[in-house]
């Protein structure tokens, strides 16, 4: 069976104003809205579209994280994923560990494609997909804005600093999504009901044979330096005058 595996991370919703705890031990997450990482919704949407076009028969979503991620997995099932896997891990999961867990799932499920987000918007690491591809010994096509599948290959357009780059990769491969790949669908109420009956498997990280390692330790969190509030000018002429006075313009 042709499968697509999609990695999902539960993150603080992108609309939440982030605050650092006064004691510098982390950011405030209590009572804060949590969502699927936006890039992962795009990854799931792409997988669903590929399936709808006949390019896959099954879409699996997987997360490595706390039991609290169940609502986000249910949400993904409501979007249209066929089944979900929760690899339970408490505490921070660094990308190298997430990648190893996803590797185990890839070995078990034998997907023809793994789609992840290009970055999780909490830690902004942008590592997991590339690490998974390396460990799996398979191609990677990161920051994708267009994906076309044919004859066991994927042609992927990537958003790079210079513009748009196109790669051809043999499948199976790992793709990471950029924002312009697609616009994720909205979930309709009946789908939420249906999703409750879809399979959600829970596994322990150790049961997958993945060692929980934390080689990167966060020792201190700080708010960023604040910019001083500036001045207002009344028109274009005054703007240029101020810029000249500041020495920004000659």
């Amino acid at each position: 069976m042709k499968r697509i595996l999609v990695g999902i991370k539960r993150v603080v919703d992108y609309n939440v104003r982030i605050r650092v705890k006064p004691d510098g031990s982390g950011v405030v997450t209590d009572g804060v809205k949590m969502s699927i990482n936006p890039f992962d919704e795009i990854a799931l949407e792409e997988a669903l579209r590929i399936k709808e076009r006949g390019g896959a028969e099954e879409v699996i979503v997987a997360t490595v994280g706390p039991a609290d991620t169940q609502p986000q997995l249910r949400n993904a099932l409501a979007m249209g994923a066929d089944r979900a896997i929760l690899v339970q891990a408490d505490g921070a999961v660094e990308p190298a560990v997430a990648a190893r867990a996803l590797l185990k799932l890839a070995e078990r499920e034998q997907p023809s494609l793994v789609i992840l987000g290009k970055q999780a918007i909490d830690d902004d690491n942008s590592q997991t997909g590339q690490m998974l591809a390396a460990l799996w010994g398979r191609p990677q096509a990161t920051f994708a804005s267009k994906v076309e599948l044919a004859d066991g290959k994927a042609r992927v357009t990537r958003e790079v600093d210079a513009g748009l780059e196109t790669l051809e990769v043999d499948l199976p491969a790992v793709i990471t999504t950029d924002l312009r790949l697609n616009e994720p669908r909205y979930v309709k109420l009946p789908e939420i009901m249906k999703a409750k009956k879809k399979p959600l498997e829970t596994l322990a990280l150790a049961a997958l044979g993945v060692e929980v390692r934390q080689r990167l330790k966060a020792v201190r969190f700080e708010p960023p330096p604040q910019r001083q509030k500036g001045i207002k000018v009344k028109d274009a002429a005054e703007l240029l005058e101020v810029l000249k006075k500041k020495g920004v313009l000659a």
């Binding site: 190298a96 902004d124 690491n125 942008s126 590592q127 590339q130 690490m131 390396a134 460990l135 990161t142």
Partner: peptide, 21 residues
């Protein structure tokens, strides 16, 4: 940059180490 973001995690994984982004 997109060059380094694409490449370095692949290097880190092959070296069996971690990356600081």
């Amino acid at each position: 940059t997109t060059f380094g973001k694409d490449l370095m995690p692949r290097v880190a994984a092959l070296l069996d180490t971690v990356q600081v982004s």
